[in-house]
Amino acid sequence: MAADTGDDHSFGRISRSKDVAFEYLTLAATLVGIVALGILFVYVTRDAVGWLDWQFLTSPPHPDPYEAGFYPALVGSIFLMIVIALVTFPLGVGAAVYLEEYAGDGPVERFVRINIANLAGVPSVVYGLLGLGLFVTLLDIGYGTLLVAGFTVSLLVLPIVIISAREAIRAVPDSRRQASYGMGATKWQTIRNVVLPEALPGIMTGTILALGRAIGETAPLIMIGAPTTVFGVPNSLFSKISAMPMQIYTWASYPDTAFQYGVVAAASVTLLVVLLSINSAAILVRNRYQ
């Protein structure tokens, strides 16, 4: 392709039309994935019509598709989000502050940074094994509980929180820090009063987006033995919980086509709507403070 453009004849009409064609080709490539997913969403939404109703959102699961509900999974996912937020936010911000404000550029720090980038790429099912080995087997704090699920998924999204928090902290202009030091503030005071407030919207956005990732995770929950079906909502950290993606996975394997095309579609749309709300919240936070 590149060879013929090197010679003189290419500076003409052919080349320009090729240029236009190439632009459309790249545009088409950009749109193809988005359009494909859009079409699939239209299908799933169409199938969810008639199934996604108040009864569905407020009932427990049931083998009869017309009585099946999503309530325990919905509430379970929300509780799970809260636990994950409480774990990852302080840890993630702490790690980011350390890496950006304290750590130098020595081999240890570099190792930590590369390690975090690498952890972000570890398959989620491996985190599931970690949760199984560490929390369920070694620490013996129960299987499939809110606490174990929360910890396991927290470890999974922590690298994402750290990376986005680091970016937010790095974006704080150095002049602000220097001004604070000039006023006689200590490092900790500077971080607390200048850096963190300034970086907060960015950190919040990153954390909320990470929660969006967390809410869709299924494989780790399967590995830690999360129940496929729960009737009722969690009432302690040691309650067995269900979660939306887990319930979808369970239902997707039900042979009844009313589940395949109705109930699972309704559940998928619910999960996508919750996800959309989470991402909108992130965008709101970002726009509000920008």
Binding site: E101, A103, D105, Y181, M183
Partner: peptide
């Protein structure tokens, strides 16, 4: 990333 850790600073407002 390679920002110098400005340790010490001065002393002043202490909470």
């Amino acid at each position: 990333m390679v920002r110098e850790p400005t340790s010490g600073g001065g002393r002043g407002v202490s909470r």
